[in-house]
Amino acid sequence: MNINLKSKLGRISLNNPVLVAAGTFGFGEEYTALINLNKLGGIITKTVTLEPRKGNPPPRLTETPAGLLNAIGLENPGIDVFLKEKLPFLSQFEAALIVNIAGEKEEDYLTLAERLNEKERIDALEINISCPNVKEKGLIFGTDPGRTFLLVKKLREVTNIPLIIKLTPNVTDISEIAQAAQEAGAEALSLINTVLGMSIDVETRRPKLGNITGGLSGPAIRPIAVRMVRDTFQKVSLPIIGMGGITCSEDALEFILTGASAVAVGTANFIDPSTALRIVEGIKEYMQRKGIENFEDLIGWLENSV
């Protein structure tokens, strides 16, 4: 049987549906020693901002049951260094290249989009309106359908690059924000970003993170993410990149069956850098076993009762 793993996110073509999530793969350099980046469906970069950002005070990480609570604070070298040093490196791979951007205000997002606009190698921008770890940043857009709509609409006007909007789970109804992004002309949606959380050292009576609160990722949040992909899939027609605690092909297939057109591996990259490539093989094996030739037939193929 000839297995076809190709998937599409609007105008974005993927060789296979397994990507690596923003903030968990840097700009790819470190992983080249361990895996073949050409075999990934796509690489989503660490968030890039206009100016370099130093990030939050340590400690920035703490482990929780099957989870990782982080408050990195979008540390990154800024757009100038990205364009000069990171983009040429990332451009050499066959994987789709998706650049994640965030701003403090609307103009920042627009300037970033304009500066990335003419870079032909970039397949899409992922718009981070959902980072929980920076005081004044994107989350104010991502929790308000009206502001999401306006931001995406204005971005749409300044760039023709496909826009993927990354949504936060820290809202009452994620599908409302998804609808706003769709109406404003988004190409696809990424969900979910991390779940806002907190952890305390009772011996010292101090929060475990320098930033006090952080974003929870890892297997602990997977059921939350799967449910949110379902809600969104039922209400909007945009393709979805599902993410949240994916560690193996079974996890990835949960997202795909409930409506994701692609998945992204995040925290698991830290634990086993080969996770994404193992998932590609696992999905292929599953399709063979189920007699399904085209990956796209799997998307949303959920039986609606137990």
Partner: peptide, 15 residues
């Protein structure tokens, strides 16, 4: 320091 990835990607173990 407590570490995430161990290879410089996650920026979690900073001082």
């Amino acid at each position: 320091q407590r570490m995430g990835c161990g290879i410089g990607v996650c920026l979690g173990c900073t001082i």
